[in-house]
Design a protein around this nucleic acid. Structure first.
Lengths: 257, 257
DNA sequence: AGGAGATGTGTAAATTTTACACAATGATAC
DNA sequence: GTATCATTGTGTAAAATTTACACATCTCCT
């Protein structure tokens, strides 16, 4: 059976070309329709969802492995990607059944060792521009799609915990770094940006104070252009001044408290 | 040679009982004489220093492995220990020579594989009460002692980077969590606490405003007792109200900006 | 007994954050 | 074509927070 050979070759490759015991998992955030989304994968022949992830090649740095997976699932390069925690609880495979995996992949039990040993997994979160992503399943999965952050189903492994912690870290990031550069389209309106902040923080903000504050950080450039097509007064379009944005990122100025 | 057998048994144990490719490193902070200190180890028969660290048993969680190492080097239990970053650069062994290690340990080259492969290492930092620590070398080291944070020598691997990032994370922690519970003796004076904050932040703070702020957090209990023996006016002693302290830790109230 | 040096304490100024309202615009409905 | 509705653009005053700052007290040392 062609498929089975492929699986076995892949597992063999895991053993020879990749670091054992360590993996990388990704919480990829997107923003669409005023909702925060995460990209999830569905295992072949099942209804089990999980986070995208990957393994680390022997000659590859941890960050590069994360970028490689991210690129594979989204088609994107050059996006914000940040490590937020490493998960190494012995019980992190509690939502994972070896027998089910066997069925899933049509494997013999001995092939499964690779999957049922506890790995330590390094969690990264990424901020990506929703519209630019081409969700792409990997070898072990049938489907890759966005889920609303508030409607994520129970996931395999400890992946629900990962999303929770990634979101917490993202919220904290918001307090000392600007956000939006890789999450919004190039041109966006002030209400767009505010909605992003409100969605991440889970609270509403004063419109005027928000604008004052954002402009005060001196990372935005207002364009002549306005956004048309809305049913109301046309708002101005803005874009990030990349240099100043990068500087604010590095300087870690105190942002929204 | 008895010693060599011991080494080989240990290396064998690494292969059978511990996760390959992953390790844990510890930045253990102490506070003494108004200086922030880190605990370092010196490799046997060398002048090379590095951070304490360890490996993870197959049936052991990542956090437990870190606690185990911490206990081994300090004799302490129940201390503040927090993961801050995972290091997985392919070049993180650049300050490490395989030949030198051979000399150090008196090993054959084939035994060394365990040391010269790149591991991914999870960095933890700990805050401990200086006076309670009994610095204890491990099998590979001759000496374990405190170093002033400003006088750390060039270390093996990427351990200097680890200290830098641990300190950065500690400074950030200071902005949303109280600190001092496991770093100061049970009873301490307000100037002690202030000195701790100033040392970590690397800047001096106003005495009156500091006190006002600290008392405002409502995590301190002022004792009747005063500290005697100083050459000056006897300052009050304080201690942390553990419950309120824990609550402040969990709530992540905004602290010093 | 006096002096040196550190501690204990409160208030006013400056800054930052928050609250808040009305005119202008553009699509849609009539 | 005109009125309507929902949304955008904009500034100021009050409140809260943060900062700056000085003098009396205590303890050991000389």
């Amino acid at each position: 059976m062609e498929y089975k050979k492929q699986v076995q070759r892949l597992i063999q490759e895991f053993k020879t070309d990749f670091l054992p015991s360590v993996s990388v998992d990704l919480v990829i955030f997107g923003f669409h329709d005023g909702q925060l989304k995460v990209l999830l994968l569905r295992w072949k022949n099942t209804e089990d969802w999980c986070l995208p992830g990957g393994r680390i090649r022997h000659e590859e740095s941890l960050d590069d492995a994360a970028y490689r997976s991210l690129h594979g699932r989204t088609g994107l390069t050059e996006i914000f990607l940040q490590q937020f925690h490493t998960f190494g609880d012995t019980r992190r495979y509690v939502h994972f059944s070896q027998e089910q995996t066997m069925l899933r992949l049509g494997l013999a039990e001995e092939d499964l060792q690779e999957f049922s040993n506890r790995d330590v997994s390094v969690g990264y979160y990424a901020l990506v521009e929703f519209a630019n992503v081409v969700p792409t399943p990997d070898f072990f999965t049938d489907e890759c799609r966005w889920w609303d952050i508030n409607q994520v189903p129970p996931l395999l492994f400890d992946h629900n915990d990962m999303i929770t912690l990634a979101l917490k870290t993202l919220r904290r990031q918001l307090t000392y770094q600007p956000i939006g550069y890789n999450l919004l389209p190039e041109k966006f309106t002030m209400p767009d940006l505010q909605q992003l902040y409100e969605t991440i923080l889970g609270q509403s903000l004063d419109r005027r104070n928000f604008q004052k504050r954002m402009l005060g950080y001196d990372i935005l450039e207002r364009l002549e252009e306005r956004k048309t097509g809305g049913a109301h007064k046309a708002p101005y379009l803005y874009r990030f001044d990349k240099e100043k944005y990068e500087k604010a990122l590095a300087d870690e100025i105190l942002f929204v408290g």
